[in-house]
Design a protein around this nucleic acid. Structure first.
Lengths: 357, 357
DNA sequence: CGTTAGCACTCGACACACCAGAGTGCCAGA
DNA sequence: TCTGGCACTCTGGTGTGTCGAGTGCTAACG
């Protein structure tokens, strides 16, 4: 289903192809990606520089189709790559290039111009990825899969309400209003947060509950409530590795010919709005390393039959890691997408390393 | 361009229509909204209960077209409302109903079930609006147009980096990393934030800069840097009344027949992604009161020729106010949209009043 | 004078046929 | 093993005819 790049270990799953067959497949995929129309034997002969006639190519094409690498929309049309064909292309035929230097410079430049603000990082990342890959982009903020307490702040706002701000070890900030009775002034609240900060420093939610320090068991009623909310928030933070997803460049893919059909467009919009599927996929990527490619759902995800994903985790595993990637039509420029994703992931790796040490 | 509701003061702009003409227009708009196909004189006679023949209706339709209330897609088709027709309908013909009680209860219930968490409020609001109005929804968080300092927190994260959390009077939380040299420990940072909290309480950015308290002028170098960032962040917060926009229900409108044409769909996606136009419009709504309706761009906004907006501000003007509303095709169920927007705005009004006093 | 029946006219939607062209599969021969 | 040739297939575009929905106009009517 999900394959690693490059040099996949399981080449065995593909029957051996002759060099010429490989070349035919390579040229065909490239041409189809560029032209978006089924590739005919004649076209292939013209552009492919294969030194054989179109008749020979027809034989090869028929064979490749039989092996499942190609599909034929109808009898008298050219061939298009099947999911399996794309897979083979991506794993064995594609030349992996780095992003061109000017683009690298441009990205670097943009990242060094902005403030150290997570929100802006994420937006910039999504924007850059969308621009360079020319498809739609997805980015999730860094996240630690063990939520450790760092800092709590209680700020009186109005009557019995106060704003609770919770900062975790991974730098994530969580906020929530809560109502404390009786009405307490800021000094009392500050004293309480100082007290809790001292008691909770570095703890996980489980530790707070399972073996609470003696001081925690003798807290006053309202402080106990605060503690309970802290535990809740931390649990939520732990569970949902991927909650927010930053996006950009949806227009890029809706311009492509395969999305002329509105039904497909809607499918993508719905998937992106509902998020659940996307969250599951991104969560999966978090636990791998290197660039991952999911082509046309590849059996596991019917909902994204028409689209492919190129994803990569970034950051420091378990401490502060997120996922970034792009989403485009199956007929997508994988080379460009992979280079872009890989480079931007590296970029964020070093940024995260700088910030989280 | 943008008109208030209800009982607009400028009825003069519409030439007088006979009661029957008004009724014809009313029925026609309703029918077109429901059926999405041009309405013929025969259909009108059948459903309209107007007591006249289709021939008479044809005469009336011709007249209404001449007056600019209707358009005719082609010679032998029925009539569709023009922008002007919708405007008249919305201002003078539509019966304004409250949301049905079950829906009101459902909304109320949902709002009382969630935590006091701004993010969740906004998401819920968007979801509810989309569900009830059956079109796409837009919501912006509450915002004060005078940013007053409330609380600052500096949290050491790693080496020379620290996380600055700034809370403003309107409850908004802003965060940013900053690098302070030399490396400072948490105690020093806490002392500094206490000091600044005392000095800056209740001030605006302008006040901090224009007539700084004497203590502010003698701050150490790194504290001065912190102060500078505070001022910056507050300026940004003041200027950008609408930065984040919560959305939901895009699929609702892409299902409509007018969006079978992908070009239109793309236009909407692009507008929503680029945000600038949307921000300008929502910002405008912030300065009005009551529900506002923008139909088919109405001259001012070419980009949204095919869509209408129903918007309302909510909250406490200048103190904590935002905008919510829906976006749908011009052929939209305005009655439902307006009821939904008005009710949800009321809902948020009371929530905001509860929290901000 | 407003209303209506009748009727001719217009135009889009749909079905159908037709053709050109692109592309294939297969076979026989090099 | 490759290739030229050829028959076959299928799509897409275009032209034609027909149907029906809907209009505008006119003349008649209460």
């Amino acid at each position: 289903m999900i394959q690693n790049l490059p040099g996949s270990q399981n080449e065995a799953q593909f029957p051996a192809l002759t060099p010429r067959q490989r070349e035919v497949l390579r040229v065909l995929v490239q041409e189809y990606v560029a032209s978006a129309t089924p590739v005919a034997s004649g076209t292939l002969q013209r552009i492919g520089d294969l030194g054989v006639s179109s008749a020979t190519l027809r034989n090869e094409l028929a064979l490749l189709e039989e092996l499942g690498y190609l599909d034929q929309p109808h009898t008298s049309a050219g061939r298009v790559p099947s999911v399996r064909g794309y897979r083979y292309f991506v794993e064995q035929l594609m030349e992996q290039r780095d992003l061109p230097a000017p683009e690298r410079r441009m990205i670097m430049h943009q990242f060094h111009q902005i403030r150290l603000n997570l929100d802006q990082w994420m937006e910039l990342t999504a924007a850059v990825l969308a621009q360079v890959s020319q498809v739609a982009s997805l980015v999730t903020p860094p996240h630690a899969n063990r939520a450790e307490f760092k800092h709590l702040e209680l700020i009186s706002t109005h009557e019995t309400l106060c704003l609770m701000i919770l900062v975790l070890q991974d730098g994530s900030v969580h906020q929530e209003m809560l109502s404390v009775t009786p009405e307490l002034d800021q000094a009392t609240l500050s004293a309480a947060s100082n007290q809790l900060n001292a008691l909770l420093a570095g703890l996980t939610a489980d530790e707070m509950v399972a073996r609470p320090k003696p001081e925690l068991t003798t807290l006053s009623e309202w402080k106990r409530q605060v503690l309970e909310r802290v535990v809740d928030l931390m649990r939520v933070a732990e569970q949902r590795a991927v909650n927010q997803i930053y996006r950009d460049g949806l227009v890029n893919i809706f311009g492509e010919p395969e999305f002329q059909d509105v039904a497909r467009t809607m499918q993508v919009v719905e998937m992106i709005e509902r998020q659940q599927l996307l969250q599951r996929i991104l969560q999966g990527t978090l636990e791998t390393n290197g660039v991952q490619i999911i082509i046309g759902g590849e059996g596991s995800y019917d909902e994204l039959y028409d689209v492919s994903l190129v994803l990569s985790p970034y950051g420091i595993p378990n401490r502060a890691s997120g996922v970034l990637g792009v989403l485009g039509p199956t007929r997508m420029h994988y080379g460009r997408a992979i280079s872009a994703v890989r480079y931007v992931a590296q970029m964020l790796n070093s940024l995260v390393a700088e910030v989280y040490g």
